[in-house]
């Protein structure tokens, strides 16, 4: 097991190196000069030269890349041309917001998706199954940004039940930064009103972000359950008079969760990608919005940092998924 983990982590480092190189090359071949953009339209050539030198952009590209890697090893992602501060400071602010949103979406997907998938399989053709089918169809068909706008229109504009965006009300002060996850930090610091507010603000973006993955998971669980329910051992258990509830939960669901776990691991990547659009719609200050801004302004260091962090997160999540297989299915061993 340990060898497996070490091997995977080593492979992840190689992947990150490759991603950093590809991102570096791609962002630098765009026909635009980030220093010129940073300096502004009225900057004199002397000013531009000065800034280019200060930022190290006057060095040859290979040298810039090596310097970037060297800094990266020290946790230094460089300076953001957009926010005018260290990229690590930006990540410190924005990353927890995305993690919180993604975790909330995952919770929503699991809490709704697993029961819905199971019930759809156990009660085929029922109303629950029909609902599952509608979710599956719409979840795959509707883009997240459109769904987000519609959700805002209905739940904020028409009904006034939920806030339109942001992590807290504008008059509220954020809780002390412990993890950066407002729900956690507010609970830890005993600010229960802030906790409630942060949950309230999480609800709509998390549901919108998770809706597409919910569709995938529900259908996956349903299909796996139907497959497992037709297996001999389930029939045997049923023949031995085991209660249906036990058969479904202990035998069928546990086995159906193995492929579902794979799907969920892959969906984390989708959630991170979807966060780009959802965060924009809901004014959610996470790395999705940060990445959008960085791309629009050719903020090299920010683009590279977000890409590397996203790849790292994706790699780690998939490693965890692989390890979870062992827990879910004792037959699997590394």
């Amino acid at each position: 097991m340990i060898r497996f983990v070490v091997r995977r982590l080593a492979f992840l480092v190689l992947v990150l190196l490759g991603i950093s190189l590809i991102t570096f090359v791609l962002s630098h071949i765009v026909p635009a000069d980030p220093v010129r953009l940073y300096a502004g339209p009225r900057a004199t050539p002397a000013t531009i030269r000065l800034i280019r030198h200060q930022l190290g952009f006057d060095q040859p590209l290979p040298q810039q890349y090596l310097l970037y890697l060297s800094n990266l090893l020290h946790g230094n992602f460089g300076y953001s041309l957009e926010s005018h501060r260290a990229v690590s400071a930006d990540l410190y602010d924005y990353l927890p917001a995305t993690i919180e949103l993604t975790l909330a979406a995952v919770v929503f997907i699991l809490v709704v998706g697993i029961p819905l998938g199971v019930l759809s399989a156990v009660l085929p053709g029922s109303i629950v199954d029909q609902v599952g089918r509608v979710i599956a169809t719409t979840g795959v068909a509707l883009p997240a940004f459109w769904l987000g706008l519609m959700a805002q229109l209905v739940f904020f504009d028409l009904l006034g039940w939920l806030p339109a965006g942001g992590r807290l009300n504008e008059s509220a002060n954020p809780p002390p930064h412990i993890t950066g996850l407002y729900t956690v930090d507010s609970l830890v610091s005993g600010q229960f009103a802030t906790f409630g507010q942060s949950l309230f603000h999480l609800l709509l973006p998390a549901v919108v972000l998770g809706y597409g993955s919910l569709a995938v998971l529900t259908r996956q669980i349903r299909a796996s359950m139907l497959d497992v329910m037709g297996q001999d051992y389930v029939r045997t258990a049923r023949g031995k008079g085991m209660p249906r509830r036990i058969i479904v939960i202990r035998h069928a669901l546990r086995n159906a969760l193995v492929p579902a776990t794979t799907v969920m691991g892959l969906q984390i990547g989708y959630l991170l990608g979807g966060a780009l659009l959802v965060e924009d719609v809901f004014s959610w200050p996470g790395i999705g919005r940060y990445a959008t801004l960085a791309t629009l302004t050719l903020d090299y260091n920010a683009i590279m940092a977000v890409t590397i962090v996203a790849a790292l997160m994706y790699g780690l999540v998939n490693l965890v998924v692989d390890l979870l297989y062992v827990v879910i299915d004792p037959r699997i061993a590394y």
Partner: peptide, 20 residues
């Protein structure tokens, strides 16, 4: 004075229309 960043113009419009 609170200056909030709301990237979506439709969201900004909604916030104005709802008095928020």
């Amino acid at each position: 004075v609170v200056v909030q960043t709301v990237p979506e113009s439709s969201s900004r419009r909604e916030l104005l229309e709802r008095g928020q």
